[in-house]
Simulated scan of single mutants.
Amino acid sequence: MSAPGNPLIVIPARLGSTRLPDKPLADIDGQPMIVHVWRRAVEAGIGPVVVAAAEQAIADAVVAAGGQAVLTDPDHPSGSDRIWEAVRRIDPDGRHDSVVNVQGDLPTVEPETIRAVFAPLSRPGTDIATLAVEIVREEEKANPNVVKAILELAPGEREGRALYFTRTTAPWGDGPLFHHIGLYAYRRAALERFVSLPPAALEKREKLEQLRALADGMTIRAAVVDAVPLGVDTAEDLERAREMLKGR
């Protein structure tokens, strides 16, 4: 299995957020949030970037900023399904051998973070790559909203195989705990395989889609980075993002 060399970055986005409706179009320093995410992905410099939009208004905003967008089925059950539709429409001949999934609600994500999620795919046998950051706040260790990545990781290493993901506090014993960051890079064949699978039992129990891949025997490796990018889920998050990106 050779290292992928022609990645495509895809940003899924939809207007139907329950906590913050229409958030991809929320204004941040004079630009819609989705445009900020698109710009960070372009700055990563690892491949072309396309926004997989569930609604025309999102596509229009991206195109107006000079980007590329494709309109996708608004009824997709997950971002992975939306991404796969966009990949098939943009690249039906399979020129791109890998796909990087950047969530559309990460306007402050750094380009180097996007580059970091792609790096583990160069390891032979890796189907999916993702990110983790060491948990330093004690209250996050028992917070079920902070998903833990259980990694086979020797001391001092910055990349390891993911053995499980969970909302509980794990693993037991001395050593670091890692917060999973929901950015992914897929080999193209792995993404196609993933979206064809039915939900797994543990996926439904933990409400974590990535467990579907592990249940099917796919290999996920995670790179450790230094910070969690701000995900915009609430009005308070949006105000933080506006402060962080003011005048950028």
Score class of each variant (00 low, 15 high):
34 I>Y: 04
46 I>K: 02
43 E>W: 00
51 V>Q: 06
11 I>Q: 08
24 P>A: 13
54 A>Y: 01
64 A>G: 08
44 A>L: 02
24 P>D: 11
45 G>Y: 00
63 V>W: 04
29 D>T: 06
56 Q>K: 12
37 V>R: 11
31 Q>H: 14
39 R>N: 13
35 V>C: 09
39 R>W: 02
54 A>V: 00
36 H>P: 07
44 A>S: 13
55 E>M: 04
40 R>I: 07
58 I>S: 05
17 S>T: 02
52 A>R: 04
46 I>E: 02
38 W>H: 15
64 A>D: 14
63 V>D: 10
26 A>W: 08
57 A>S: 14
29 D>L: 03
65 A>H: 09
32 P>R: 03
42 V>Q: 15
12 P>C: 10
18 T>R: 14
35 V>N: 08
28 I>W: 04
17 S>F: 13
50 V>H: 09
21 P>Y: 09
45 G>D: 02
29 D>W: 03
16 G>V: 05
11 I>N: 08
17 S>V: 00
20 L>R: 06
9 I>H: 04
44 A>D: 05
57 A>Q: 13
45 G>V: 00
51 V>T: 13
58 I>W: 06
18 T>G: 06
47 G>D: 09
24 P>K: 08
45 G>C: 01
30 G>T: 00
46 I>T: 03
40 R>H: 13
17 S>K: 01
34 I>K: 04
21 P>G: 12
19 R>F: 03
15 L>T: 15
22 D>V: 01
22 D>K: 11
18 T>S: 14
31 Q>R: 15
51 V>N: 07
53 A>C: 12
39 R>H: 13
40 R>W: 07
45 G>M: 01
22 D>R: 14
12 P>Q: 09
32 P>S: 10
66 G>V: 02
62 V>G: 05
26 A>P: 08
25 L>M: 11
55 E>L: 03
26 A>V: 06
62 V>W: 02
27 D>V: 03
29 D>M: 05
51 V>R: 04
52 A>W: 01
47 G>A: 06
43 E>P: 02
40 R>T: 10
37 V>G: 13
48 P>T: 10
25 L>F: 07
11 I>M: 10
49 V>R: 07
36 H>I: 02
67 G>P: 05
38 W>K: 10
16 G>W: 00
48 P>K: 09
64 A>Q: 13
42 V>A: 12
50 V>F: 09
47 G>P: 03
39 R>T: 09
34 I>A: 07
51 V>Y: 04
43 E>V: 00
20 L>V: 02
35 V>R: 07
48 P>Q: 12
19 R>D: 14
14 R>A: 15
66 G>T: 04
38 W>Q: 14
58 I>Y: 03
59 A>F: 00
23 K>H: 13
56 Q>S: 11
38 W>S: 10
11 I>G: 08
62 V>H: 05
42 V>M: 11
